[in-house]
Design a protein around this nucleic acid. Structure first.
Lengths: 341, 341
DNA sequence: TTGTAAGCGTTATCAG
DNA sequence: CTGATAACGCTTACAA
């Protein structure tokens, strides 16, 4: 009895081609191990039947999924979009499929999604940043799932990472700001708990300020989730209490854009009355008026290299070497000298 | 022999708890069908072993994946991000996992990804827009995979859709523009081939113009892929040949932002010298200076309702009814009256 | 070169 | 309430 209108199986193909299922399987997976004549017969059967292999069955038998999982903190803004796109393109070229989920910056959700991805047989995992419950790393280690971290570079971490030095980048930018003559500095950071990138950016600012303790008289820092509105609110906050900073460094472009907008609503000119900087150099940074001076991150390059390395780890041709990518400061219009007092 | 450090299976749990695999399975899937005493024994075994069910095996046996696939044209900008986020949140609540891929607006790639998702056993599929090779619909139909289209509303299409009326929305906006006194209109559209949304937006403009043939003396349309730079280039093009339009309607916000920037680079004031409008109302629209007058689309609502409907279709509690969501024109600063000649 | 058959880890049916 | 056991569709030794 033929099962009415259910997806055709290997056996259906085999029957139609008059061969065994093993031969059909070989035709599809290692065509050269079967003679041309039978191969053609099989392939035409595949074609007329519209056969597509059942993925779950393949996985069960082969114990390989050719799937890579990635969990990013958010899909709502473009922070990870470009890098992920490059990641996926490179994976696709190598025959892998990417499964993406977003954790909304929530550790529990991320953990759940990691387990889901593992249960689905992901051959490897891409995670953003290092900070997470050690239990997760133990779990992954037990399961022997290759893991690569991106958007952060910490050579001494237990897990290899491909990314940039968040602290150094912000350190450099802060020095530039100080060099311009700014003495009162404000920072609007993302939430640093459980987010090494945010934390290191703050440290970069702190370090630079500490190194210039004679030059800088005031540093105030506000933490808030990465959203435009929050950037605006934090900016208000910074400008309403105590002496106003002349430069506000933001943990990323999203916050910076919010800050710029609020500055304008307050009637402050950027950068004449207050300088504002971002981080990431996403499209938003160029759209903002004035265009944002920010830290450029090589998103596409990072994504591509991460794919290469992770596939290498999965296929055991790479050992998971940490890689540091360069960041650069891109000067646009939102950073200037402070007004003379 | 215990397999060294491989993921524990149902059998491992069963052995440890001193029950059969069937009982373990029941404990996990219908806990009330097993008495408390054994259940507790089993669950603690699950816990100490760190057991996670093997997804592929589950799928093979149950023929259900609780997975929904979605293919969107792009992840690079935020057009689909918000709606997809809502879609995924709602799915998650209902116990489904979302698999996303992006097709980069390429029909072949989309087709390939549809097949991949189906092979992976997606219980249902969300696609953007109706336009695609009929063979794909046949294929999906043969496989009996429920499909829902979003971001477009075409009640008579073979596949149910949840979205908005792209033509009507643009028709309304164009009438508003004409009502303001604009006589020479330009349009920067996305590529309309294989994209019913883009095509219908153009038709909306055309229809409104046709209906006001006495009022409008000129309508010029350029098609270009949805990218900021392309919006800028198309704007240059529109303004350099023949009489300049006084209003440029863009197929989406991304193109409009590019147009605004180019206008400013050309020294044109928006909207005094030229009006520019968008479509979608993504975050960019509010960031742009001047802020963009655009068509607001209820992204989150659409995503949520699409999830509900699609899950309903999968679980056979819904029949796939098309649903039209309202759009509204949001007036900001980029649209004004034309200058007196 | 091709066929046979033993898994892979679950779920579900049917007895007990 | 619980236990055998037959699928599920494919890959892969091992045989022929």
């Amino acid at each position: 009895m033929s099962k009415l209108r259910s997806a055709p199986t290997l056996e259906d193909v085999a029957r139609m081609a008059g061969v065994s299922t093993a031969t059909v399987s070989r035709c599809l997976n290692s065509p050269d191990r079967v003679v041309k004549a039978t191969r053609q017969r099989v392939l035409s059967a595949v074609d007329t039947l519209g056969y597509t292999p059942n993925f779950a069955a393949q996985v069960m038998a082969a114990k390989r999924t050719f799937t890579i999982g990635a969990i990013i903190p958010t899909m709502e803004n473009a922070i990870f979009a470009r890098g992920l796109q490059a990641f996926q393109e490179e994976l696709h070229q190598r025959g892998y499929t990417l499964l993406v989920s977003s954790s909304a910056y929530k550790p529990d959700l991320e953990e759940e999604q990691i387990r889901t991805l593992v249960a689905r047989g992901a051959d490897g995992l891409l995670l953003i940043g290092h900070d997470r419950d050690p239990k997760i790393y133990e779990y992954l280690d037990r399961r022997k799932i290759p893991v690569l971290v991106a958007w952060s570079y910490l050579p001494d971490a237990q897990v290899p990472s491909i990314g940039f030095d968040n602290r150094a980048a912000m350190f450099e930018l802060t020095n530039r700001v100080i060099g311009l003559g700014h003495k009162r500095i404000g920072m609007i950071s993302g939430i640093s708990a459980g987010n090494d990138r945010a934390r290191l950016r703050v440290e970069g600012v702190r370090d630079a300020v500490a190194q210039n303790e004679l030059a800088v008289s005031d540093l105030r820092i506000i933490e808030t989730p990465y959203e435009i509105e929050n950037g605006a609110a934090a900016f208000s906050n910074l400008m309403s209490k105590g002496t106003r900073p002349t430069a506000v460094l933001c943990g990323n472009d999203v916050l910076a854009v919010g800050a710029i907008r609020r500055a304008q609503e307050m009637g402050l000119r950027v950068p004449q009355d207050v300088s504002i900087t971002g981080f990431d150099d996403i499209e938003l940074a160029r759209i903002a008026t004035p265009a944002l001076t920010t830290v450029h991150v090589p998103h596409r390059d990072m994504g591509r290299k991460a794919a290469l390395e992770l596939v290498g780890m999965v296929e055991k041709t790479a050992d998971g070497t940490a890689l540091r990518l360069p960041t650069t400061i891109v000067e646009r219009q939102s950073l200037g000298r402070p007004a003379k007092p």
